[in-house]
């Protein structure tokens, strides 16, 4: 069940989206997220859907693979939808006991769920088509000005890329420890909240111990390969903009323009 999480995973393929400069993808993702909250009306959303559909198609990542990632946040979506449906005041459609479902609420629920889905799909297409290393390279370069105010951009970027690399490993490990403790009679499912939290200890302690051990090993392995911070480092894949990147920037800005325009129409 835990291995179904696709957020943060990289899907290797050879597509134009994979080849785009990570800075472009970071920028586009940011713009897309903003646009989701700016989009209004059927046309506004229609454009967002079309834009996303086009990118997914171009990326060659199977749609099925992306949908699988959504399953992991299903509960979050249901809660969001329920809150919106039940707590928005307005014209009552159905009511039972103390609950009222309003027309506005229903509309909001649909809108919010849709936004959430697009948000997740939009950001996961970035992580799916960009290796963590490229992503951090992009961040590092985009945020380089912050170095001037003494923010260790390289170190932060390196930490992020390593975290991303270890997510799937730790997820698998969680699964394994959970099963091992279940074999010793552990119960992760029943009891009240306090008891459940307490029951997590046999899972969390080994997980932390393992994470620290891995961190230790990895630090040593990095040192052994002459890692000594960002100074004097060269890049195997330095970031340089190609023509497609400028084109992509124009496209993204045009998309934002259209979304904004549709707001006023």
């Amino acid at each position: 069940m835990l291995r179904d999480i696709t957020i943060g995973q990289y899907y290797p393929a050879d597509s134009i989206i994979h080849r785009l400069d990570p800075r472009v993808k970071l920028f586009a993702t940011l713009i897309y997220v903003i646009s989701l909250f700016l989009a209004k009306g059927v046309f506004g959303f229609g454009i967002s859907v079309l834009f996303l559909a086009m990118i997914i198609w171009l990326s060659k990542v199977p749609f099925k693979f992306m949908v699988k990632g959504l399953k992991a946040i299903m509960i979050l979506m249901i809660i969001t939808a329920a809150f919106n449906a039940l707590l928005t005041p307005g014209e009552v459609l159905v009511s039972f006991w103390i609950f009222k479902i309003t027309k506005e609420g229903l509309k909001n629920a649909v809108m919010m769920t849709a936004r959430l889905i697009f948000l997740i799909l939009g950001t996961s297409i970035m992580t799916l088509t960009t290796t963590p290393n490229q992503l951090t390279d992009g961040l590092e370069k985009a945020l380089r000005p912050l170095n001037k105010i003494k923010i260790p951009v390289h170190a932060i970027a390196m930490m992020m890329s390593i975290a991303l690399r270890f997510i799937p490993i730790l997820v698998e490990e969680t699964d394994k420890i959970m099963k091992a403790q279940m074999a010793r009679g552990a119960d992760f499912e029943s009891g009240n909240l306090l008891k459940r939290v307490k029951n997590m200890i046999p899972l969390l302690v080994p997980l932390f111990v393992s994470a620290f051990r891995r961190a230790d090993d990895l630090a040593m392995a990095m040192e052994a390969r002459c890692y000594h911070g960002g100074e004097g480092r060269t890049k195997m894949k330095p970031l340089t903009y190609a023509r497609r990147d400028y084109l992509a920037y124009i496209l993204v800005i045009a998309y934002l323009g259209v979304t904004l325009l549709l707001r006023w129409v």
Partner: peptide, 11 residues
Amino acid sequence: LVFQYPEHQLF
């Protein structure tokens, strides 16, 4: 059932 590397479950 004793899993592989069972010492990883000690807590």
